[in-house]
């Protein structure tokens, strides 16, 4: 993703709870994963996360930063049909998102 300015949320400590969420997500069979791309603006990605998932600003920015720094972020887990709808919505906003089966 593109950095237009130094971002106040650029703090690795903010990623710790996101990793915990990923571990919990493995209890479910399908995962929605958002992948990094160098074009989408960070502010845009965070705004789309808020819109699609109804997250607050902090949570949306945490996942956006995880995409930016780690290359991907698991943003949802659950039943396949709902996951397909989320991926379709994310593709509708031109984010790179995939639906993958959980490894366990």
């Amino acid at each position: 993703m593109t950095w237009l300015a130094d971002h106040p949320m650029n703090d690795p400590r903010l990623l710790e709870s996101t990793e915990t969420e990923q571990e919990n997500a493995f209890d479910h069979p399908w995962l929605v994963v958002v992948h990094n791309d160098p074009v989408n603006l960070m502010s845009y990605v965070a705004m789309i996360f808020r819109r699609v998932f109804g997250w607050n600003r902090e949570r949306a920015e945490r996942h956006m930063l995880e995409v930016h720094t780690k290359g991907r972020s698991v943003v949802w887990s659950g039943a396949r049909e709902q996951g397909e709808l989320y991926v379709q919505q994310l593709h509708g906003h031109l984010l790179l998102a995939t639906l993958v089966r959980s490894p366990r």
């Binding site: 969420e21 997500a25 929605v32 808020r50 819109r51 998932f53 109804g54 997250w55 607050n56 600003r57 949570r59 949306a60 943003v75 949802w76 887990s77 659950g78």
Partner: peptide, 8 residues
């Protein structure tokens, strides 16, 4: 989106 109700 200030609510966390719709979390994954």
């Amino acid at each position: 989106g200030e609510s966390d109700d719709a979390e994954g």
